[in-house]
Design a protein around this nucleic acid. Structure first.
Lengths: 204, 204
DNA sequence: ATGAAATTGACCGAAGGGGTCAACGGAGGT
DNA sequence: ACCTCCGTTGACCCCTTCGGTCAATTTCAT
């Protein structure tokens, strides 16, 4: 891929990347027209082929970029170094919302790419995935201190439940782009407050 | 559309329908090849065009069929006539799982069709949607009796929370087809038990 | 003005798309 | 044995789309 791409003004690079995520997230790899990416980014197809030597390279760049972005934001919002469970939840959510704000279709692209079956890219996707897998912020369950929660609570169920509700909410939001960042933050904050109110032990 | 389609053996009709849902759920209307539907259903393209006079007719039939199926299952599982909130949740879930079992891609197709922008079908989709809208099993919130729940609980939040968790779970399941009906039922049952345990007032 | 870099429109060959149609083959009637 | 009907198909048509190239034009710093 052409190094010139990285010297492009932020705005232009952004629009190319987002056009890519949009197109590839709504079509399979094979049926995603490079021309559509170009025109949506406001440049000619020829120029796009000037930055990326072919469709595959563009696609794989976008894929690698997902991981980069995610790690970058997660680090910035301190998702890796929170002690308290709800704190971690909160910062994770904020990171995710910011990503959605800047790259609305990245989430869907990630999933679609992960399950992509086209032999032209499948193996590269798989290979690159294991490389980044270790960055996942797992082990939140172990960090839960049972003393803080209502007695007898099934912590694993609670964790699953919260996780799924968050997924469900994000999924719902993704259906009707563009997203409303303000609303999402306040919705999520309310939800976390709600969870705290029912799951945390009352100290009275 | 050709009436002969309805006299087809159940199995064959099924496979055509499912092939249709699969293809149209993973591509936009325009980029869904009729030939792919046919070959996946195990028949020739010509024969498919014998049953449906063109692509649009096939697509709209599948769309109408979604509503039919949904209403049929919801009725069969008594989703419209349950009094208790958790009972309703349970029967709704069972209906949904059975649908997913028989028509794995119907859910995704419904959403995709709903947001389809292609001028060739958009208006028909919209029009047909309002026709069925009234069948939605709404108003579950009003049916909630606050006395049965823990004092001070925000019922609306609880409702939203449960709804989103269910969505999140179903979405997760849909990513890795084919579905495991047994597992889904037991997962869901456990989740409902969990919700009951934390939201319902303890009578001791 | 000049040369290099950025950017494009026109173009190409291949593939894929919706839809048609003549023909095939088997079941049933005579 | 022959005909007829009908479910079914493969080959075909014509048009569009796609990935990728390239010569030509525009932009811009010097």
């Amino acid at each position: 891929m052409n190094e010139k791409f990285f010297t492009l003004p932020e705005e232009k690079r952004q629009s190319i990347i987002n056009a890519g995520y949009r197109v590839f997230s709504q079509n399979t790899y094979k049926k995603s027209p490079v021309a559509e990416v170009a025109s949506e980014a406001g440049i000619s197809k020829s120029l796009l082929f000037h930055y990326f030597k072919n469709k595959k390279e563009l696609y794989l760049f976008l894929w690698e970029n997902c991981a980069q972005i995610t790690i970058e934001y997660m680090t910035e919002y301190g998702c890796y170094d929170k002690e308290d469970f709800f704190e971690m939840l909160y910062s994770g959510m904020r990171a995710k919302i910011r990503i959605m704000e800047k790259y609305p279709y990245m989430g869907e692209f990630t999933i679609k790419a992960f399950y992509e079956e086209d032999p032209e890219v499948r193996d590269d996707i798989r290979k690159s995935y294991v490389k980044y897998k270790s960055f996942k912020a797992d082990g939140a369950l172990n960090r839960l201190n049972p003393d803080k929660f209502v007695p007898g609570l099934d912590l694993e169920m609670m964790h699953r439940e919260i996780y799924m509700a968050a997924e469900g909410y994000l999924w719902e939001m993704m259906q009707k782009l563009p997203i409303d960042v303000e609303k999402m933050e306040s919705d999520f904050t309310r939800m976390i407050e709600f969870w705290k109110s029912i799951y945390l032990k009352k100290e009275d």
